[in-house]
Write a protein that binds this DNA or RNA. Structure first.
Length: 605
RNA sequence: GCCGACGUAGCUCAAUACGGCAGAGCAACUCACUUGUAAUGAGUAGGUUAAGGGUUCAAGUCCCUUCGUCGGCUCCA
């Protein structure tokens, strides 16, 4: 279930103090290496810490080695961390050569921001921590002395760019990431986890399993789905269609292009233009490739007069969209520029909202079960007043009203969620579902958004029981995300060992010598006739090599066939986990695999 | 988009800090072997070293530009 178990807050833990203190020690080492360095902030984060510096030159990997070495020396010095509370003016005196610190002190004095740049509720005390020769503006807490850190349990990981205060208008600083643990064993364990995660990286497995490729000549962020990926897409789409048909959805199809007018009306051009491909102009008319399907679905809703008897109307489409993601934001299949979305728009009357909204949440839970997703969090994203008219449609009354409706629906439905301000879509609040793959990597996949503004802009209406025109609410939802992101997630989640129903190749039939080839062809033919994805390996290689090859492709079932099996109409079943079942009648195997496929079993063997 | 690193055969990697004849394994193809649950052996072919420009007697290696990828930042399904 969702991760809401009570536990010690990380901020109060020993590990947090170790990491935060390690950040200070690293800053000391960096300042010794480059005395002109300006230092900014350096918090503890999940699995480690970082510190941001403004440096006269770029850091090199050799610098990191030096810095790490010096950190160990400082730790060995057993210097105590000493806290001191002081006035803003005194702090300004201490940090007079550190412009970033002076900016932070101003923020603290006005009670706006803490030293990590987070907004403050009330005006804080200003404090500094000193160890050895290094003093930092800091709220703490720290370990008592540097020796409390195990010098063999820290490691500097990487250098990266980061904007001062996370704002892209500000200067780019150099950030050093480090990791720190209580014991060397824990450090090793963490590094091992990183290695394991690399093995599951969807970019690596996607290539090895021949699921997708990127081609420089086609363009960045524009994946080509190979036949194996094509199979997975087909399977996901049939699942979605099945579920949506049962849920009362109607399927529609819409073009990839539309005239500029439509996107002006929808609000995409004013609010979303920088994520859209630029227009193409023909005969004086501008056309845009669509970044979302909603405007077309709205037009379909508007194409007929609607009565309250028809409501809700649920329009579904695996729509292909194009978004101009900035080049540095692209990431394998997870962040692409062309994508196919498990999209639908639900138009309903206000009193139908709660039921419809919760039905969508129900869909998520159904899918989570199918895909063995055990850990997730519903993130309720709301607007921020400051963004009205810029990031968000300027109608505070409707924002507050719809946010309240969503909150009530979630509470009535007993669905745990966390509320995150200032992350809504431009047209309304949304629920994003954050999930964790089997190795604990986090993804934002499904989304469920309320649109209170656009139906009005599109002049959408239905006739209510009183014979009056009423504007419907619209729910945008995409429980299976996009094919790109969802399959990327599935590859990492299953490490390529997909459940049988989803496996691009389900059965590999392997003859021991080529005198069994004819029988093998016959077996494959029978399996294929039943819709099972089977192929024969009749290459010149030996049986062992064929098994290895099927194993590397993570094909769930191998049927090994020799003289004996051929004569008795049997197969020797080898599963990808290495387990075996000999002397199995072909019909028995067919019964086994058909059951797995039909039930979309989540069992991996 | 920004900071930094990287780009050698279909894939994984070499090519001795300091320029001096582009190499290996796997995959592919050919031939032989006919094999009982993770690699049979031998041979053949495969490259304008991402693209373009520059320095040099000589550039995979040094410099510049462009493209792409990766680690982050920002942004997001």
């Amino acid at each position: 279930m969702s991760a809401n178990e009570p536990q010690e807050k990380y901020q109060d833990s020993e590990l947090f103090r170790i990491r935060h203190s390690a950040a200070h020690i690293m800053a000391q080492a960096v300042l010794e290496l480059m005395p002109e360095a300006k230092y900014t902030i350096g918090p503890a984060i999940e699995n480690g810490f970082y510190y941001d510096f403004d440096l006269p030159r770029a850091l090199t990997p050799e610098d990191l080695v030096q810095i790490e070495k010096r950190m160990r020396q400082i730790i060995a010095g057993n210097h105590p961390f000493v806290r001191r509370v002081l006035s803003a003016d005194e702090a300004r005196q201490i940090f007079k050569d550190q412009p970033y610190k002076l900016e932070l002190i101003d923020g603290l004095e006005k009670g706006q921001f803490d030293e990590d740049g987070n907004p403050l509720e009330e005006k804080p005390e200003i404090s500094i921590y000193t160890h050895d020769t290094f003093t930092d503006l800091c709220r703490g807490p720290h370990v008592e002395s540097t020796r409390k850190i195990n010098p063999s349990a820290i490691k500097l990981m990487s250098v990266a760019g980061a904007y001062w205060r996370g704002d892209e208008k500000n200067k780019m600083l150099q950030r050093i990431y480090g990791t720190a643990w209580k014991t060397p064993k824990e450090l090793e364990q963490y590094l091992w986890q990183l290695e394991e995660a690399k093995k599951r990286d969807h970019r690596k497995l996607g290539k090895e399993l021949e699921i997708f490729v990127f081609d420089e000549e086609v363009g960045p962020g524009l994946p080509l789905w190979l036949p194996n990926g094509g199979v997975m897409i087909e399977e996901l789409e049939s699942l979605a269609k099945e579920v949506e048909n049962a849920g009362g959805y109607d399927r529609v199809r819409t073009p990839h292009l539309t005239k500029e007018e439509l996107f002006i009306r929808s609000g995409h051009l004013p609010y979303y233009a920088e994520s859209m491909y630029p227009p193409m102009e023909l005969e004086g008319v501008k056309y845009y490739v669509k970044p979302m399907n909603c405007p077309m679905h709205h037009k379909i809703f508007a194409s007929l007069p609607r009565s309250y008897r028809d409501m809700p109307i649920r329009l579904a489409e695996y729509g292909t969209c194009y978004r101009y993601e900035k080049s540095g934001e692209l990431f394998g299949l997870m962040r692409v520029r062309s994508m196919q979305m498990n999209d639908a728009h639900i138009y309903c009357a206000e009193e139908q909202f709660e039921q419809e909204f919760m039905a969508v949440i129900g869909l998520y839970l159904h899918y989570f079960e199918i895909f063995n997703i055990e850990k997730y969090v519903m993130r309720f994203s709301t607007h921020a007043k400051a963004g009205l008219g810029k990031k968000y449609i300027d109608n505070e009354r409707l924002w507050l009203k719809t946010e309240d409706m969503v909150r009530r629906a979630m509470q009535n439905g007993g669905v745990p969620y966390i509320e995150v301000p200032d992350e809504a879509a431009f047209y309304g609040p949304k629920i994003d579902v954050q999930i964790w793959s089997a190795i604990g990597r986090e993804f934002t996949l499904a989304t469920n958004q309320v649109d209170f503004a656009v139906p009005e802009r599109f002049d959408l209406k239905f006739i209510n029981p009183h014979g009056e025109e009423e504007i419907p609410l619209c729910i945008h939802r995409a429980p299976l995300s996009t094919h790109e992101r969802f399959i990327g997630f599935l590859i990492e989640h299953y490490a390529g060992n997909f459940p049988v129903w989803l496996s691009p190749q389900q059965v590999r039939v392997i003859p021991i010598t080529d005198s069994q080839n004819d029988y093998v062809y016959n077996v494959v033919k029978q399996l294929k006739a039943l819709g099972i994805r089977a192929s024969a390996d009749v290459s010149a290689a030996r049986m062992n090599a064929k098994i290895r090859s099927a194993q590397l492709f993570k094909i769930p079932y191998m049927l090994v066939i020799g003289e004996r099996e051929m004569n008795e109409g049997k197969v020797s079943l080898r599963r990808r986990d290495g387990s075996r079942q000999d002397d199995l009648a072909l019909e028995s195997f067919i019964a086994i695999i058909q059951e797995k496929i039909k039930s979309r079993s989540g069992e991996l063997i």
